[in-house]
Simulated assay, not measured.
Amino acid sequence: AKEKPQEGEVIAVGPGARDEAGKIQPLDLKKGDRILFGKWSGTEVKIDGADLLIMKESDVLGVIE
């Protein structure tokens, strides 16, 4: 069965990911973007009572414009 993607908002991003040469590649996502991601993507954490997901940019299925 196909699962419907989940929707969320980016609240923070890191500096980027390192490539094979060790150089940081900037992210395409930015704070405030509305995104779609798979149901089992990311790692759930609870910070200051808020349930959040930490995920790689590669887990994002798309950005809603």
Rank of each mutant, 00 (worst) to 15 (best):
A1D: 10
A1G: 14
A1V: 13
K2Q: 07
E3N: 11
K4H: 13
K4A: 14
Q6D: 04
Q6R: 14
Q6N: 06
E7F: 05
E7Y: 02
E7D: 09
E7C: 01
E7N: 06
I11C: 03
I11S: 02
I11G: 02
I11H: 02
I11N: 02
A12L: 13
A12K: 10
V13P: 00
G14Y: 04
G14S: 15
P15R: 11
P15C: 04
A17E: 08
A17S: 07
A17D: 04
R18F: 14
R18N: 07
D19H: 10
D19L: 09
D19F: 12
E20I: 08
A21S: 15
A21Y: 10
I24R: 05
I24Q: 07
I24A: 12
Q25S: 05
Q25G: 02
Q25N: 09
Q25C: 08
P26I: 11
P26N: 10
D28S: 14
D28C: 03
D28V: 04
L29N: 05
K30C: 03
K31L: 06
K31F: 07
G32M: 02
G32H: 03
D33H: 07
D33Y: 02
D33M: 03
R34Q: 15
R34C: 00
R34D: 00
I35W: 00
I35K: 00
L36C: 07
L36R: 15
F37H: 13
K39L: 12
K39P: 06
W40D: 11
W40V: 11
W40P: 03
W40Q: 13
S41H: 06
S41C: 10
S41T: 10
G42C: 02
G42K: 01
T43H: 05
T43P: 02
E44S: 10
V45A: 10
V45M: 09
V45R: 13
V45G: 09
V45Y: 04
K46G: 04
I47Y: 08
D48Y: 13
G49A: 11
A50G: 01
A50L: 11
D51C: 03
L52E: 05
L52W: 07
L53Q: 00
I54F: 13
I54E: 07
I54K: 05
I54D: 04
M55A: 03
M55I: 01
K56N: 12
E57F: 05
S58R: 05
D59T: 06
V60T: 00
V60L: 00
V60S: 00
G62V: 09
G62E: 08
V63C: 07
V63L: 05
I64D: 05
E65M: 05
